[in-house]
């Protein structure tokens, strides 16, 4: 019985001829699918509404990694659960620095590297802010990192992957032109606050000005005094926008919006719909600058 199950698993993988890929996040899974199409089978460990910093070290995830040819992780120390999962998976191919491991952050210039590292500053990331995929320009780098590993694992499909990557890059280029054209007249004029320090890459790319966060420090829940200070600051600076990722609660956000008259953008930061990553950024920009 045992032998047959193992045989079935091994055969099904070979017969399908698909490269089995596990990613940390849905955005990475989308990029993998864009390049690999039907030649890959991809699954994200995190769901779109989960915080990338917190995933349970569930043995079932180890089992998924056990069968993976490639594992894509966010890097920059964002995912403390990756190392114990990799150790438990006992799949040497996908260990860090090995052939099947993709550090998606390779080539990204990180923002927000703290000048000093202390928990006084909250849950800071010593290697910089890991939410770099909120700048779509970085998706080209991540897609390139995935491509380079794919062609090493499945070199027979190199041309196929290459054409798909070029096709993605073209779509990215035309979307980027559309978005930058749309935000150009508003550059430096739109002020916003967010719940968590998620948006430095996005706001740098599209010229938004962040004046504060609802969390006083990363990972620290807001006190009522901090909320009142933030409201005063928003009023003083005429800030009328709150961008909150869907992974964060809305109760305090609604209160601040009520007091300041600010608009709330409740944004997806990971692909939730079938139309994908570029559509997600599109929706975000249209939410911030509607009707043009």
């Amino acid at each position: 019985m045992f032998k047959y199950i193992i045989l079935l698993l091994v055969c099904s993988s070979f017969l399908c001829g698909q490269v089995s890929i596990i990613t940390s996040t849905p955005n990475q899974a989308f990029l993998v699918k864009e390049i690999g199409k039907d030649k890959v089978k991809v699954e994200s460990l995190l769901k779109p509404r989960e915080d990338m910093h917190f995933l349970d070290v569930n043995p079932v995830f180890m089992n998924k990694l056990y069968f993976a040819d490639i594992f894509v992780e966010t890097g920059l120390g964002a995912e403390p659960w990756v190392l114990p999962l990799l150790q438990g998976a006992k799949n040497r191919k996908i260990l860090r620095q090995n052939i099947g491991n993709v550090n998606a952050a390779r080539g990204i210039a990180p923002l927000g590297i703290p000048s000093s590292i202390s928990r006084d500053l909250g849950d800071v990331h010593p290697q910089g802010n890991p939410h770099y995929l909120l700048d779509p320009v970085n998706s080209k780098i991540v897609a390139g990192n995935i491509y380079k590993t794919l062609i090493r694992i499945a070199p027979q499909h190199t041309n196929f992957f290459k054409q798909n990557l070029i096709s993605y890059n073209k779509k990215l280029r035309s979307s980027l032109i559309k978005w930058l054209k749309k935000v150009k007249p508003h550059k430096g004029k739109i002020k916003f606050v967010s719940y968590h320090e998620l948006w430095p890459y996005f706001s740098r790319r599209f010229g938004l000005v962040q004046i504060g966060t609802i969390e006083p420090k990363p990972g620290i829940q807001p006190s009522s005094r901090h909320i009142q200070n933030l409201i005063a600051q928003m009023k003083a600076q005429n800030c009328r926008l709150i961008i909150v990722a869907k992974i964060y609660p809305l109760n305090q956000v609604r209160y601040i919006a009520e007091k300041t008259g600010a608009k709330i953008i409740h944004a997806s930061i990971e692909v939730e719909k079938k139309d994908g990553y570029l559509a997600m950024i599109d929706e975000l920009i249209n939410g911030i600058i509607p009707g043009e």
């Binding site: 990756v82 390779r106 290697q127 890059n169």
Partner: peptide, 15 residues
């Protein structure tokens, strides 16, 4: 965008 072989120049450290 068609030169997909270019190598990123920066390598972030291990986490």
């Amino acid at each position: 965008i068609e030169n997909v072989e270019s190598t990123p120049t920066r390598q972030p450290g291990d986490p």
